[in-house]
Simulated scan of single mutants.
Amino acid sequence: MTDDTAGRVALVTGGSGGIGRAVAERLAADGLAVAVHHAGNAARAEETRSAITRSGGRAVTVGGDVADERAMAAAFDAVEEAFGGIDVVVNTAGIMLLSPIATLDLADLDRMHRTNVRGAFVVSQLAANRLRPGGAIVNFSTSVTRTRFPAYGAYVASKAAVEGMTLVLARELRGKDITVNAVAPGPTATPLFTEGKSQEEIDRIAAMNPAERLGTPEDIAEAVAFLAGPARWINGQVLFANGGMA
């Protein structure tokens, strides 16, 4: 903990597993009190909360559909009641459904955009109105906006929208001392990435960056901690955390 992090509070959406859990634990290690958000898997969120408290940190769990403005307003209320305010919001919540554009089930398109686009918008809107001065909003995009892998078209479209709203919001918050950035991970060793892929495909993608490995959730959490804490002069940017893949 440093003077810069003492007393600060973070809300991590999608904090019950994968990258979200790594982010929650990394911010807690920096001394922030953390609210671990889940969209339904309360047990996994509780595992993350327990891991943080066992390490001497402060954490609570909150639930709600990120695309439901009332549910998320209640989640923000709960965090403020527990810790007195919110300084950092990290929006890792998202889903990825892969298909060629020509054959994508439009129901999957709607489902993905509801979580990835509307959800990011709802959370960003609440954060813009409720974060304390000196705060930071960190949204999540994807490095596939550059690598342009086939079958990722709808997912990339949702994340390109997140990038766009992030960059605009940074400028709209002029004078409020709140930074707004996005992290764009490359392929990361989480179930979101590995599910449905053969080991051969995973190995091929891992070999595409100079380090010849997949990223880890902890790699991505380091980038988030940077933007959430000391990186006050970085604002309105997309940070590509992909090991040099693109």
Results as ranks from 00 to 15, higher is better:
R118D: 01
M72F: 13
V66D: 03
A136G: 04
G56C: 03
I220M: 04
N91C: 09
A154M: 14
L106G: 08
L169V: 12
A35N: 13
S55T: 13
E163N: 14
A182P: 07
F140D: 00
E222G: 05
A151G: 10
Y155S: 07
I220N: 10
V66M: 00
D3I: 15
L106E: 14
M165Q: 13
A241K: 09
G94Q: 09
A207P: 13
Y155G: 01
I234Q: 11
S198K: 08
Y155H: 00
N181V: 06
V34P: 00
T53G: 06
L11F: 11
A246E: 12
D203G: 13
N129L: 09
A29V: 08
K176V: 12
N41M: 04
D4R: 07
L169D: 10
E212P: 07
L97T: 13
G31Q: 10
V238T: 04
G14T: 04
F140S: 07
A45E: 05
L126S: 02
V183W: 03
L173V: 08
G64T: 02
F193A: 13
V122K: 02
N242G: 05
L104I: 12
P100W: 08
M72Q: 13
T53S: 05
P210T: 01
A127H: 09
G196V: 03
V79W: 09
D68Q: 12
I137L: 06
S141Y: 14
K176W: 05
A82Y: 03
A82P: 08
T190W: 00
T13R: 06
R111V: 02
N129G: 12
L173I: 02
V12P: 15
G135L: 07
R118A: 10
A136I: 05
A39D: 12
H113G: 09
G84H: 10
A78E: 15
P185Q: 08
L32S: 03
P100M: 04
I19V: 07
I86P: 03
P100N: 14
D4Q: 10
V90G: 02
V168S: 14
G244T: 14
R70V: 15
L214D: 04
R148H: 07
E172A: 12
E163K: 07
P187D: 01
R26C: 04
G15H: 01
T103K: 10
V79S: 06
G94N: 08
N139P: 08
T216L: 10
A39E: 14
V12A: 02
R130Y: 01
L126M: 01
L131H: 01
R58Y: 14
T147M: 11
E195A: 15
L97A: 15
V9T: 09
L227I: 03
